[in-house]
Measured scan of single mutants.
Amino acid sequence: SKGEELFTGVVPILVELDGDVNGHKFSVSGEGEGDATYGKLTLKFICTTGKLPVPWPTLVTTLSYGVQCFSRYPDHMKQHDFFKSAMPEGYVQERTIFFKDDGNYKTRAEVKFEGDTLVNRIELKGIDFKEDGNILGHKLEYNYNSHNVYIMADKQKNGIKVNFKIRHNIEDGSVQLADHYQQNTPIGDGPVLLPDNHYLSTQSALSKDPNEKRDHMVLLEFVTAAGITHGMDELYK
């Protein structure tokens, strides 16, 4: 796709999030870079409003799984890469995230190029959380598991539907599940690639910047598309 050509090198990323969870309002600002050749993201996020009212790991899918245009699609799968094909005009990404036995996040993001920078601007609203639950009670460990993110075409809306389940580790050794339902639709009216069913395999590492006084998260992530085999004719070339 034409959009794919915008991702040949390292691309700067800007992320802006405004959130409200159970009436606790907050903002997060992030910057870093993405390299789609390797499916690599390096980002640093800062809570610009003081202390973040929710655990950082609960925002990873909104912040970095928010820029799935940096996923590495192998050559034989490039015609299934909706995310890059929607660029530079970008796409709207909407999600509902259900935390098992707790509340939910609803998010709406616009992901697009502004100049040479890929920008992810998000509004997040969280409701029905227990004040002493795993999320508002800050009981999650500061780490992140690997996940597969399942993608299918949504021809009606000229976009994709995505769903997956995140496993958050809790300090007591148990797990907090979070079910994600995602819809992506193009902002522009140019042609986009509608994929066959496949998935993104994601690995994320969270860390801290020892010199950063503000509440923050440093993230390194690798994302690769998989799940579609080479056609038989490919094998015999």
Rank of each mutant, 00 (worst) to 15 (best):
D215E: 07
K40Q: 05
N169Y: 08
G159R: 10
E89V: 08
D128A: 10
D18G: 08
F98V: 08
G34D: 00
N134T: 04
K25N: 11
Y142N: 04
P12R: 05
K106R: 12
P88S: 04
K125R: 10
D179Y: 09
A205T: 15
D35Y: 02
R214H: 06
T37I: 06
K157M: 13
K208T: 11
H147Q: 07
G227W: 11
Q156L: 10
F98I: 07
L41M: 15
N143S: 11
K208N: 06
F113Y: 08
D233G: 11
D18A: 07
Y199F: 13
G133S: 11
T224A: 11
D172V: 06
G30V: 00
A178V: 10
M217K: 01
K25G: 02
L194P: 05
M77K: 03
M77T: 05
K161N: 13
Y91F: 04
E89A: 07
E141K: 08
E5G: 12
I160V: 15
G66S: 00
T61I: 00
Q68L: 01
N211I: 06
E114K: 10
P12L: 03
K51Q: 03
V11L: 07
Y236H: 12
D75Y: 08
P195L: 04
T49A: 04
T117I: 05
S27N: 08
T117K: 08
Y236C: 14
V162A: 15
M152K: 08
S29C: 15
F70C: 06
H230L: 09
Y199S: 07
I166M: 06
K157G: 15
V28A: 01
Y142F: 06
D196G: 12
P195T: 05
N148S: 05
K100T: 10
Q156R: 10
L43R: 00
K157V: 15
S71R: 00
G133C: 14
K40R: 10
V15I: 13
K165N: 13
T42I: 13
N143A: 11
K139E: 06
E123G: 05
S85Y: 08
K112M: 06
K130M: 07
N158K: 13
I228T: 11
L59P: 00
F83S: 02
I127S: 12
P55S: 10
S71G: 13
G190D: 07
K2Q: 14
K155R: 13
V10K: 04
A226V: 07
K106Q: 13
N184I: 12
I151V: 11
D75E: 11
H76R: 09
K100E: 12
E114A: 06
L124Q: 00
Y199C: 10
K44E: 01
G3A: 15
F82S: 01
V223G: 02
K157R: 14
G133D: 05
D128V: 03
F98Y: 11
K25T: 06
V60L: 04
F113S: 01
D154V: 05
P57A: 08
Y38N: 15
N104H: 15
A225D: 02
L17R: 00
H180N: 04
V15A: 02
I170N: 14
Y105N: 01
K213E: 14
F26S: 00
N169D: 13
D35A: 03
G231D: 14
V175M: 13
Q183P: 00
N143H: 04
H138Y: 04
N184T: 06
M232T: 13
G9W: 02
T96N: 11
L177I: 15
T37P: 10
G190S: 12
N120K: 03
D154A: 13
I127N: 08
H180Y: 04
R214S: 03
D20N: 11
I97L: 04
G137A: 08
A226P: 13
V111E: 00
D101E: 09
K139R: 13
M77V: 06
E171V: 09
K44R: 06
G23S: 03
P88L: 14
K213R: 12
G137V: 02
I166S: 12
I127V: 13
I122L: 04
T58P: 00
T107S: 14
C69R: 00
F129C: 04
N158D: 13
S29Y: 14
